[in-house]
Amino acid sequence: MSISHAPPEPSETDISGKSPDSGSPHTPTLEPLLPASTRRARVPRWLRRTSGPLLLLALWQLLSSTGVLTTEVLAPPGRIGQVGWDLVRDGSLPAAMGTSLQRVAAGLLLGTVVGTGLALLSGLFRVGEDLVDASVQMLRTVPFVGLIPLFIIWFGIGEAPKIAIITLGVTFPLYLNVYAGIRNVDTQLIEAGESLGLSRWGLVRHVVLPGALPGALTGLRYSLGIAWLALVFAEQVNADSGIGFLMVQAREFLRTDVIVVCLIVYAFLGLLADFVVRSLERLLLQWRPTFTGR
């Protein structure tokens, strides 16, 4: 009687032919690949965001030091900083900023009320769209700067025409974005709300308005930018205070350094306003996850 022997089972080996428990010191170890977003996170984000302005400032200083930019064309950064500090110390710049902020706040408030109200009327009701949308679309193509002489005739040379210019510039971006936000709400959400028994006002409150909120905040960001642009034009027409008034005085005396200081103040105020709106977006749109980049 013969006894058959089963062949031994092959032992597990790695791709190099060695046993995994052989303990060879020459076994290569692979480090995990990190995604690009993780590698970039090692550099602080605030440093990356400030690197662009700092490089621009260094280039400005270099061109001024080498004589490419003369003082008559553009003052060097050191001179700009000294002039800005002098304006702050004598109180003229803080007073001008306060006046300009009041004008922007008043125009922004009125423009927000008018633009949002017209958008709600036109977006929620077909009759409102027929009555409002065509007129608004025609008026928004008229340059609001060209209406300055007409506003002066209507409202005089006081604060009213300046606020009216800002209000007109703010109204149309808000109207367009709020209207588009309302009309772009997914119809499936409307049908789901109706199936749950929501009334018309319930649909508007719980479905339409939250769906239009991202568009409204985008319109607010656009409106803030246009508000500062309108303020520049408004304050250079029959103004006796404000940042634009400082720029007009500096132009009369060929003070490019003062003009640059005022422009920098405009830029920082606009950046601050945009930061406020971004913070408002993060607060109000927590329910809406979005792509944040990689």
Rank of each mutant, 00 (worst) to 15 (best):
V207A: 11
L231A: 07
A164R: 03
G225I: 12
G181R: 13
A58E: 02
S199F: 00
I190V: 15
I243D: 03
P210D: 02
G211F: 02
Q286K: 13
S65E: 12
P210T: 02
P143H: 04
T66C: 11
R42Q: 09
I226L: 15
V142F: 03
Y179H: 14
A180W: 00
N184I: 05
L254D: 10
A36Q: 14
D257N: 08
L62G: 12
P10F: 00
A58C: 04
A234R: 06
V83L: 05
G52I: 15
P214G: 11
F151Q: 01
L47K: 10
S100Q: 06
G193S: 05
E235S: 08
Q249C: 02
Q249L: 13
F275G: 15
D186E: 13
P289E: 11
T66A: 12
E31P: 10
A212P: 03
P214Q: 09
L272E: 01
Q286I: 09
L110Q: 08
E235I: 00
G219N: 05
V204G: 06
L47Q: 13
I163H: 05
S24N: 10
G67S: 04
L34C: 09
P25W: 00
L168W: 00
V170F: 02
I264S: 14
H5T: 15
G78V: 04
P289D: 11
T256N: 13
L54Y: 01
M138S: 12
V204L: 06
L280F: 05
V185F: 01
I80V: 15
S199I: 07
G84T: 05
R221W: 01
S22E: 09
T256F: 00
K162T: 04
F172H: 13
V145H: 06
D133V: 04
L30Y: 11
G91E: 03
L47G: 15
A164F: 01
T167N: 01
E31H: 14
P149Y: 02
Y266C: 07
A6I: 03
S51F: 06
L189S: 10
L254F: 11
L189R: 13
R294D: 15
A36L: 15
E194F: 01
R89S: 15
A36M: 14
F144Q: 10
E281F: 02
R183E: 09
I259K: 00
G225L: 10
P28H: 01
F125M: 08
V113Q: 06
L110P: 05
I15C: 07
A192L: 15
N238R: 13
S241N: 14
M138F: 15
W201D: 03
R126Q: 14
Q82K: 11
A273P: 05
G117M: 03
A230N: 12
A227L: 09
L124H: 01
A239K: 04
V232D: 03
F291Q: 14
A267N: 03
L147K: 08
L231K: 01
G146T: 09
S16R: 13
T187L: 08
S100N: 10
G215Q: 04
L57H: 06
R79W: 05
E194Q: 15
L285I: 07
R200D: 09
S241W: 00
A230D: 11
R251C: 02
V207C: 10
L30E: 13
V104S: 06
T187K: 13
A36D: 10
T112F: 07
